[in-house]
Amino acid sequence: MEEIVSEIKKDYIASLLDQGKRQDGRGFDDYREIIVEKGISNKAEGSALVRIGDTQVMVGVKLAVGEPFPDMPDSGVLTTNAELIPLASPTFEKGPPDENTIELARVVDRGIRESGCIDLEKLCIAEGEKVWIVFVDIHVLDYDGNLFDASSLGSIAALLDTRLPKIEDGRILYGEKTRKKLPVVDKPVETTYAKIGNNIILDPSLDEELVMDARLTVATTEKGEICAMQKGGAGTYTREEILDIVSRSIDKGKELRKYL
C-alpha cells in the first residue's frame, strides 16, 4: 500500500529545508538518536535491536551446518533475508516479500558480503562437505524511515554478537554456545542521504522519505573504502552531488561505527 502525502506536508518540509531547517530540528548531517542493544534474543546465535529515532529493527543471526556451494567448496555461506511485517506499519502487507523487502535485504547483504567482513573461509568445517551457513534475518518492528541504515547497523551488531554453538557427534547443540566468535574482520556500515528539492539530508525520517525525490545509500568500510551503493527513488542526482554524498558518508560511517 502506498501512503498519500498531503500537499501541505510536502510544501512545509521542502520550504523548511530551503531555510536550512528540518521538521524535527536536526541539522542536515545529523542522525536521530541511535540506540544499539546486542544480545536481545537468546535463541539466536547473535542478535541486536537498533533504534534510529522511532524506527526499530531487530536482527537475528542463526547458524546451521550445510553443504558449501560447488564453486566455493572451502567457504561458508551467507544468507541475508528481510521481513517487512505488517506489525511495523499500516502500509506493510502480509504475503511473500515485495520489491522493497527484497531490495532492503539485498542492499544490506551487499554491504556485508562485498566488504569481506566475514572471513567465510574460516567457516569451513570439512572442505566440499560441511560448512557453517550464516542466516542474517532482518525483522522490522516499527517503520519511521531509513530502514537501510538501521538494518545494516543491526546486522553488523548481530554478527559481532554471534557465538558459535557447540557441535557434538555431528549434532548442533543450540542451547550451548561456545565462546568462539564469528570471524568478523571489518565493520561496514551504510549511510543514507535523501534528496528533497535541492537539499541533501542524512537519515530521512518517514515524513521526509514520503516526500523525497531520491535516496542514495553508501556502504563504507573501516578503512574508509566504499563497498556497496544503491540509489533509490524516481529523482536524479548530479555527479557533484554523488561525490559529495560519498565523502559525507565516509565521515558519517566513522560516527556510526562507534555504536557497534
Binding site: 534474543s41 539466536a44 537475528g60 546451521a64 533475508n81 534475518d137 525483522h139 543450540y174 542451547g175
Partner: peptide, 12 residues
Amino acid sequence: APFSVSDRKRPG
C-alpha cells in the same frame, strides 16, 4: 521470527 527458535524457522 526466523531467529526466535533453535532451528531457524523459514520465514512465512
